[in-house]
Computed example of a mutant assay.
Amino acid sequence: MINLNGILVEDSKATINVSNRGLAFGDSVFETIRVINGKIIFWEDHYFRLMASMRIMRMEIPANFSPEFLENEIIELVSENNLIDSPARVRFTVYRKQGGLYRPQSLEIEYAIEVSKLSNPFYLFNTDFYEVELFKDHYINSGLLSTIKTNNKAVNVLGSIYGKENAYNNCLLLNENKSIVEALNGNIFLVKGDKIKTPPLTDGALNGIVRKQLLSIIKTIPDIEIEEVSISPFELQKADELFITNVIVGIQPITKYRKKEFRTEVSKNLLTKLNVKARLG
C-alpha cells in the first residue's frame, strides 16, 4: 500500500500524472525515514527538516501538517503493510501541485508516502571492504539548496554510475571550490588523531539527520574534538579513519581510498553510541 495525499492505495493502482511537478521540474523534497517496531527514529529532526525544506522551496505548508498528523500517516501506512513489528524504510515525498511551467500556478502541495522492509532493527557495524574515490565530473554547489533533500539528484545519479563502472563502493562529491562535501548517499566524517572533521553546511553538505546526532554525541566524548570545517582531498590520505553516515545504515566505515587503508575503531565506537541514542530517542 502507498499513501497518496492521505488516501491508502494499492501499489499497482498508485499513479501520478505525467505533468507532476516533481517529475517535470524536480519541484519536490523528500525525507528517508527509519521506523522500528512502530517507532519513527529521530522523528522530530525529520519533521523539522521537512518543514524547513518546504519553506526554502517556497511551498505552502498545509495547516494540518503537524508532527502528530504526519506521524500518524506514516505509522498507519507501516501498519497497513504489515511492518508494524518490523524495521521499515519510509520515503515521504512532497511535491507542488500540478500546473505552470518553471513558475508554478500554485504553491500548494501534495504528498506520497512509500514503505519497504529493512532487514535489521538497529544499525550493524559493516566490516566488509569498502573503497571510495572522488567523483570529479560534476560538482555540488555550495549554498542553501544543497543542504536539503530535493529530487534534483543528477550529480548523485551520475556519480553512482561512475562508481559502479569502476568497481567503487561509493564516491565522494566535491563543491565548486574543490572541497569534499559528502558521499553519494550520506555525510562524510574524517578522523585524524583526537580530531574529527565534517564539512560545514555552508560548503553544500546535506543537513543530515545522523550527522546532527553524531555532532551531539561526539561533543560529549572527552579528549575528542569535533570541527565543522572544509576538507581538502589532500587530507583524505592522511586520515586515520573515514566514514559515511545516513539514516538507513547509520555509519559506514571506509576501508580504502586510493593507496590508503583506514582503521575503524572510532566509527565502531560511535555506532554503538548512535544505537543507544536511537533506542532512547
Rank of each mutant, 00 (worst) to 15 (best):
S106M: 10
I244F: 09
L215P: 07
K197D: 14
P121K: 06
A88F: 10
V247N: 15
G163I: 00
Y130P: 01
K153S: 06
I254S: 02
D85P: 04
R258G: 05
P62E: 04
F135M: 12
I36C: 14
I251T: 10
E110V: 05
F65G: 02
L174P: 09
V115I: 00
Q105T: 09
P87R: 14
I148C: 14
S146N: 13
H138V: 10
V132I: 15
L172E: 08
K260D: 11
S106G: 11
S66C: 12
F42H: 06
L118W: 06
L201F: 06
F135V: 00
V181S: 01
S116I: 01
I221V: 04
R91S: 02
T202S: 15
A112D: 01
G143K: 09
G38I: 08
N5R: 15
M59K: 03
W43E: 11
T264R: 08
S106W: 10
L77M: 08
N269F: 10
N81D: 14
M51A: 10
E165I: 00
L8E: 15
E241K: 04
I16M: 11
V90A: 02
G100I: 13
K192L: 12
F30V: 02
P200R: 11
N64A: 11
F234M: 14
N37L: 11
N246P: 05
E182L: 01
Y168P: 10
P222F: 00
T147Q: 04
V249K: 03
I218G: 01
D45W: 05
L236E: 13
Q98T: 10
I226C: 13
Q105W: 15
G281W: 12
A183W: 07
Y139N: 12
K192T: 05
T202W: 11
K117E: 09
Q237F: 02
T32F: 06
T202M: 15
V78T: 07
W43P: 09
T93E: 12
L70C: 12
P253K: 11
E241W: 02
D45Y: 02
A112M: 02
K153R: 15
K97R: 10
R96Q: 14
I226S: 07
I248N: 07
T32Y: 04
N37V: 01
F30R: 06
E68R: 01
I74S: 07
I84P: 12
L184V: 08
N170E: 15
G22S: 09
I209R: 02
N5Y: 14
V181D: 01
E228N: 10
R263Q: 03
E44P: 06
G208P: 08
L190W: 04
T220Q: 03
L158S: 06
S230D: 03
I244Y: 02
L23H: 00
D203R: 05
T220R: 05
L145D: 01
